[in-house]
Every structure is written in C-alpha cells, then in structure tokens.
C-alpha cells in the first residue's frame, strides 16, 4: 500500500492534467488550475526543504571532516549571514523584524542583505562565470584541430561564427560590395546560425520532446518508480 497509493495518485493526477489540456471546460479546466496552485505552494515549501538539506549535508561533511571540509564551513557561514541579515533587517523592498538604524543605512548605503548581495555576491558570481572565457580559450586551442572532414567543417563554421558574431567581423568585410553581400562575415555567421544550426537544434528538440513524453508516460503508468525512493 505504501507504494500503490502514491502510484494511484500519480496516475490519477497525470491523467487529469492530460485530459484537461483537451477538455478545458468544467470540471477539468478548474481542477487543472487548482492543481497548478497547489504546485506553486508545494514548490515554496521545497525551497525551505532545500535550505534545510543544504544545512544538514554541510554539517555532516564538516563533522566527518570530508575532503575540503573548511570550504563547507565557509558555505554555512555565508548562508547563515545572508539569512540572518535578510530576516533581521529585510531587503530593499521587504521590511525585516527590526527597523534598520539610520547610522547603519548611512554606513552601508543599503540594507546589509542588499549590500552583501550587490558588492560581494554579484561580483563573485560574475567572476566565476567570466572564468569560463579563459578555459574556453584554452580548450578551443587544444580541441579545434582539422583532423578529418567533420572536425574541419566544425572548425571552419566555428571561426566564421566567432568572427561574424563580433564587431571585428563586420569591420573586416565592410568593404565588400552589396552584390557580394553573402560573403560579408556577419551574413555568413547568420546563415550558419539560421539554417544548419537551427536544423540540428530542431532535431535535438524533437528527440528530447519524444523522450519527455516517454518518461512522463512511464511515470504516469507506474513503470518508472524511482521517484518513490528506494530501489
């Protein structure tokens, strides 16, 4: 019964959602809207669950002195500081438990949560993402080798797109007369993006769509049961 009841609920709700897409009238249309509302409420609780889980997992790793355990302390301390600042003094639009003093506001220029977010989190986050540029440059140098016809094609397309999607590309070929406009680098890049790229992407999307339908049916029909936990 422990597995059968959740499976029955899954089947019932899954079938109801599918039916409501084809019959948007009462009672199916209303039920589908209500279920959507429930999903939003449950998702809200899932955030709290995620935060508690983050705390638990980090504490376990610190207590067991797992590899790189000092980093988990930093994660927990940072998390606690942000949560405390947010709850105590609130954010730009949301009031906190205690009003922020003028002295503190003048000192930081923002509420503590917003100050940390703007001057620490944003910059750290952008830095992490920017590091990709360096690794991509190094990886491109090593990976883009014209070893065979396929890799040569990939290499040539990549060079055209890289040049065509920058201002250098249009500067390099801006002298080309209009009658030969198809040789203008941004036009070549647009062609590659619009036709070969889109064709490939659509093929991937269609396959992924079929995959989603297949796995959804497996869950609704009770063939796929991993979401119930256990083996």
């Amino acid at each position: 019964m422990k597995r059968q009841i959740p499976m029955l609920i899954t089947f019932f709700v899954g079938a109801l959602i599918i039916v409501s897409e084809f019959i948007p009238h009462k009672p199916f249309g209303n039920l589908s809207t209500s279920l959507g509302g429930w999903f939003l409420i449950i998702s809200g609780f899932a955030i709290i669950l995620g935060q508690l889980s983050l705390f638990k997992v980090n504490i376990i790793k610190i207590s067991r002195k797992a590899p790189n355990w000092p980093y988990f302390i930093i994660a927990l301390v940072s998390f606690s500081i942000m949560v405390t600042c947010g709850i105590l003094w609130g954010t730009q639009k949301q009031p906190g438990l205690i009003p922020i003093s003028d002295k503190m506001l003048n000192f930081f220029g923002y509420k503590p949560f917003d100050y940390i977010f703007k001057y620490m989190f944003e910059n750290l986050s952008a830095t992490m993402f920017s590091l990709l540029a360096f690794f991509m440059a190094s990886a491109s140098y090593r990976a883009f080798r014209a070893r065979n016809a396929e890799s040569t094609l990939l290499l040539v397309a990549a060079v055209f797109v890289m040049l065509g999607r920058t201002t250098i590309g249009s500067t390099l070929t801006c002298w080309i007369p209009e009658s030969l406009g198809f040789l203008h680098l941004p036009n070549i890049a647009s062609f590659i993006m619009k036709y070969p790229n889109t064709a490939g992407q659509r093929a991937i999307m269609i396959c992924a769509g079929f995959g989603v339908i297949g796995s959804s049916l497996r869950i609704i029909l009770g063939i796929e049961r991993s979401y119930l936990g256990g083996k």
Partner: peptide, 24 residues
C-alpha cells in the same frame, strides 16, 4: 564590451590557427 569580446574572439582564432599549423 563588444570591443573586448571581439578582441578575445580574435585571440582565440589566432591560437586555433597556430595549433592547426603546428598540427599539420
């Protein structure tokens, strides 16, 4: 920012060319 991105792309292309010259 586009100037910076353009120069970065150009550097990557130069390195790709160098790598391929060495490879051949």
């Amino acid at each position: 920012g586009m100037d910076a991105q353009s120069v970065a792309h150009l550097i990557i292309i130069i390195f790709i060319l160098i790598g391929n010259i060495g490879y051949f």
